[in-house]
Structure formats: structure tokens, C-alpha cells
Computed example of a mutant assay.
Amino acid sequence: MVKENRQKIRTHGLIVGKLPTGAKNDITDVAGVRVGHVTLDHPLDAGEGEYACTGVTAILPHGGSLFREKVTAASYVLNGFGKTTGLVQVNELGMLESPIMLTNTFSVPAVTQGTLQYMLDGHEEIGDTTGTINIVVGECNDSHLNSIRHCAVTPQDAIEAIRRASEGPVEEGAVGAGKGMVAFGYKGGIGSSSRIVRVDDACSYTVGVLVLSNFGRKEDLRIELLKSGSPALQEPADGSIIIVLATDAPVSDRQLLRLAKRTGIGLGRTGSHFGHGSGDIVIAFSTAHKIPHQATEWTETRTQLREDHPLMNELFAASAEATEEAIYNSLSQAVTTTGKKGNTIHALSFSSTN
């Protein structure tokens, strides 16, 4: 029987890549970044076997006003079988002005509404004395474990996930938006990892990744350590993944797009082939610059990494490594979960936790 006290994959001897991790080995190693979850895990009064096995996860680039102090951002679609909101404007303007919210497919409207209400409550100017706001929400389909048609997630759940966001270690596995997700036939969900890229003894940058993993079959897994004796879901499914990348490196939105593309390398290393029905989407941001919503100057000056400096290649490697390890962490930290109609998805078992 698998213990409930789950650990990151490194405790089982799997070391991904060559770059060092941050102190927590998760996305909150990027200073200022916050993560919060709301998890729903209860029967529904909607018929026998109907169950809420789902949730919401919020990622905040910093603890201030994201609308008044935006951050540089970009997104990249590896495969577009997804139902996100807000990415068109992110890519057009190269900025993020709301929390990044993750949930299940049918809860995107409720989470968008809740996040919008949270931002409106704290910003009396939005839609009145200034423009509207662009809310960013990503999703994966958790309908094997969650009674998704009953739309159990409410706008208040989104608000609460934002309020719970902290800079502490990220809770991973079957929590928040990851509660009902399945990866490689095992219990997946939220996973995170980070990498440190050193410029010299006095300067370094951090790349952090958080994933919502919900893709793949057992036979796709390329790491034998992870092919445990636990029963795996055999139903063929393309599944999906949302990858959120954060960094404190001073990069432009175009350079962030380049980093976002490299997360696909880490995803592919795990065994994914970006299936036909898979929503594989990356959202990336940098905390290096805060972009004021209102300013009197007509120009702005910022520091930006040189494109041809070797540091860019290190950041590319960090993006790939952190993504691969975040996916493994989503598996190693998840717990066996029972949901809709008694469906059960087993967690990976390891010799050290049997």
C-alpha cells in the first residue's frame, strides 16, 4: 500500500538534467511567485456515484496588483486541443495582468468569473476610468474521476484559491486543479520544479515550472523507474497538459516565447507525443520588470539579455529540465484517488514507499 506522505521524484533516485535546483525545487523559487489551491473532494447530490473530484489552482507572478503592475508574458501552443481564455491578448501585448488560473474543462467560465470578480473588487478603475482586464485560465479534462457535467467548481473557489496563494513550497499531486487528473495511466496533477542558471559568482537567475499533467499511457513512459506495479488506466486518451513557466531573468516577451517552446522538449522526454486530442499549452512570464498600467512617459527603458549570450542556452536547458522533472513530481507526489462512479486511479508505487 502506498503511503500518503509522498515525496518529490529525487527522493527515489531520479535526477533530471545537470543544472542545480532552487531551494524548494518548485516555481516559488522565483522570488515573489505565489501558488494557491482549492480542492473539491466530495459526493454530489446529483445521483448515485456522482462525485466532485476537481479544483482550482492559482499562480500569481507577484504579491502586488497584477493589473496596475503587469509582467512580461507569452504563451505557446504545442497542440491546440484546449479551451483557454486570455492567451490571444497575452501574445498580442506581451503582458500578463491577472493571476494564471487552472481548473477542469467545464469550469473555465466559473473560474474566469471568480477571478474577474476578485480583480474588480480590488480595482475600482477597471471598466470605469480605464480599460477592461484580460483573465487567463487554462484547463484539462478530469472527467474520469470528476462528474464534470455538474460543474461543481464555483466562482468563489477561484477567489479562495487566489487568497490562499503563498510563496511557500508548492503542494503537489492530487490537489487543486490536479485533483482529478491522470498521467500515463497513473494519478497525475500538479507538479513543479526549478533550475538555477548562474551568470557568475554574483549573479544568477531562476526558472520555475508548474504543470497540470493529464496525458499519456503507461507504455508511453520512458523512465523505467516510473513503470511501477500499480494498476494503470488502460483507456486510450490523448489527455492534456498546462505548463506554466516563471523566471526572474530579464527577457522580452519574444525571448519568453523561445523559453516556452523549450518546455516541449521536457514534455517529450517523458514520453508525450502531443497527441491529436491533447491540449498542450505553455504560459510563460518574467518577474524582472513590472509594467505600470498608467505612466506619463512615452518611452520606457529596460534591461534585456543579449540573444547571443551563452546564458540563453542555459535558460533553454533550464526550461526543458524543470518541465520534465515537474511532470515526474506530479506523478510521484499524487495519491491513489477514487472519484466518480467509484473509478479509482492508482498512484505510482516505489520500492522505498511500499
Rank of each mutant, 00 (worst) to 15 (best):
Q255I: 04
E314Q: 13
S204N: 07
A74E: 00
L225D: 01
Y118A: 02
L259V: 11
R222Q: 13
S192D: 03
V207Y: 07
P109C: 10
S230A: 15
T247C: 10
I223T: 07
E325C: 11
I196Q: 09
G339W: 12
T338Y: 12
N5W: 14
I283L: 02
T353Q: 13
I148T: 02
R302V: 09
R302L: 13
E125Y: 04
S194Q: 06
I190C: 05
G178R: 02
R217L: 12
G266L: 11
I133S: 14
A284P: 08
I196N: 00
V38P: 07
A158L: 04
H144C: 07
A347G: 05
G216C: 08
T303K: 15
G268S: 15
A347V: 01
D121C: 06
A110R: 02
G168N: 04
V30S: 02
A177T: 00
M101E: 07
Q113N: 14
A317L: 12
H62V: 02
L116I: 12
P43A: 05
T72K: 08
T28P: 04
N104G: 06
P231F: 15
I241E: 06
I241D: 06
E325P: 08
G127W: 15
G216D: 02
R306P: 00
K341H: 13
Q304V: 15
D308I: 11
L226S: 09
H293G: 02
Y328W: 12
L19P: 03
L210E: 12
D29M: 00
L102D: 01
G266M: 13
I283Q: 01
H62D: 01
G271T: 08
E160Q: 14
A237Q: 04
G208F: 04
C203T: 10
G189N: 04
